[in-house]
Computed example of a mutant assay.
Amino acid sequence: MNDTPFLDTLAVRPLGDGTFVADLHQDWAVGDRPHGGYLLALLSRAAVGDTSLDPLSVSAQYLRSPKVGPVLLRTERLKAGRTVTVVRAVLEQAGQVCVDATLTLGEIPDEPPTWSDLPDMPVNPPPDAVDLGSSEAGGPNGLARACDMRLDPRGAGFLRGSTSEPLRLRMWARPHQGQPDLLFGLIAGDLTMPVTFNLGRFGWSPTVQLTALLRARPANGWFRLVVESKAVHGPWFDEDTLVIDSTGRLVCQARQLALSAK
């Protein structure tokens, strides 16, 4: 467990003209590769800047993987309207573009949804949920330094060496310090291990493209994550994630195209 508050890992320092510098934090990396959702949260913080706007959608192309350390963030306002503002945000390191994102900014609605159809899942992780920072899961590693993650063993066939389970996982997550917010919701949309673990594919699975929609400001408590894939074709697979807060509100929907080792 780390002692760095979540928002401190997303600190950006303005240089003027929509340019920022930041340091990619080790706690949000697997090895020396920063987590994809964390990169989106960092870009979102730069895109919002000193406005009162919220990120409503983020669509990103992952061109190359940056390493832990300093980066440059460039933002450009493409549209400024009464309801919607559109910003392009680019993350660069060593003179190369690593992530190129387009963000739609606006105001997250506070009223409850008129209609929703979400999967049923316990508000809190059950006693047999696997703590991904525990010795049972191989010891503290990766993102378990940055947040508390509990995996539902039901459906996680890879834990038992099975490769016959559907590509569907369920997990609970929250920051080690403080309560989840919109930016943590964006991270949660890309937080689980790849669902292709259930096929026995344990290699690195880089995200190629990811689009996330932020739908509601979260309540305190655990996030509930439901992650599934519709198809795996060769090395390519899709992964859809629903992030639901403790009151049953949909916080984030994320869909990505990724690569896995065969």
Rank of each mutant, 00 (worst) to 15 (best):
A146T: 04
G138Q: 09
D131P: 03
A60P: 06
M121V: 10
G189E: 06
T196N: 01
F6C: 08
R64E: 07
T9G: 03
V123K: 15
A258R: 11
A22E: 09
R201S: 11
P175K: 09
E136K: 14
F6S: 01
A219F: 04
L91R: 04
P153G: 11
S164K: 13
T104W: 02
K79S: 08
P109V: 01
D181V: 05
V195N: 04
H35E: 14
H176K: 01
T19Y: 03
F223R: 04
A94Q: 15
T75Q: 07
A46R: 02
M193Q: 09
L53M: 14
A144G: 15
T51M: 02
C98Y: 11
T196W: 02
D17E: 15
D27L: 07
V226G: 03
T241G: 00
L43Q: 08
G31A: 10
P70E: 13
R174A: 11
S57F: 09
S135F: 15
A216V: 04
A41F: 00
A261F: 09
V48Q: 08
P180H: 05
A231K: 15
R64S: 15
V68R: 12
G189R: 01
Q177S: 10
V232H: 09
G142A: 01
A212T: 15
D100A: 07
R13N: 13
R215M: 12
T163Q: 15
W28N: 05
P113V: 10
H176N: 00
T9N: 05
Q256I: 08
Q93L: 02
D148G: 03
V227S: 09
T196G: 00
G16L: 04
V71W: 12
P5V: 14
Q253V: 13
L191H: 07
P112Q: 04
L169R: 10
R45I: 02
D110C: 07
L39P: 01
V30C: 02
F223H: 01
G200S: 10
A94I: 06
L182G: 01
Q256T: 07
S44D: 05
K67D: 09
L250R: 12
G49R: 09
